[in-house]
Amino acid sequence: MNRLLSTSLVAAASAALFAGCATPQATYVDPNSNRTLSNVGQINIQDWNMASEAMINSLIEKQVNAGKLKASGPDGKSILAISRIVNSTGAQIDTDMIVKKIRVALLGTGKVVADITAGLGGAEDPLAAEAKREQEFLSTKKVATRPDYTLSGKIIENRAAQGNLRESTYVFQMSLATSDGLAVWEEEKTISKQGKKSAVSW
């Protein structure tokens, strides 16, 4: 009887111990919804979503839908290359959080292709760049090498505080330039967030 009792106690204690060590269960949230976490002092998923949505809509409306794109790429598509996106915020951020979304959307329009062999600091895809060089060397056929457009930008941060209230403003600026160096499209999206000191991550 005593043995049964002690075995049960050990089992219960082990279960309690393991339950205590278990990490809290994670809940999946839709990253495209308004249920993701956001705080002051950081660019959150919702901020990237809103900034890229504004940029994509503006680019499609003012350039793609307006039929203003110059196209020298395959099937009459414009060739886009990504230039420098300057991070002027205090945080270390990966600018692909916005650039990739813009590229995905532009490719999805069926009017633009991205050149991933051209880029500052080297090709994004070195193997594709090598294949392109080989093709140019072996073939007499001219390969479209010059991008029609380059996309550049800057992300700026501004912070303000009043009493217990903190405010972070992020300004997303983007420009599209032709191969002649002329900017044909520019857009700016400002996102401001306020929060009490306890909700601030800095």
Partner: peptide, 9 residues
């Protein structure tokens, strides 16, 4: 679906 189908506040 695409990058613009996101919740805008």
């Amino acid at each position: 679906e695409g990058p613009t189908s996101v919740a805008i506040t």
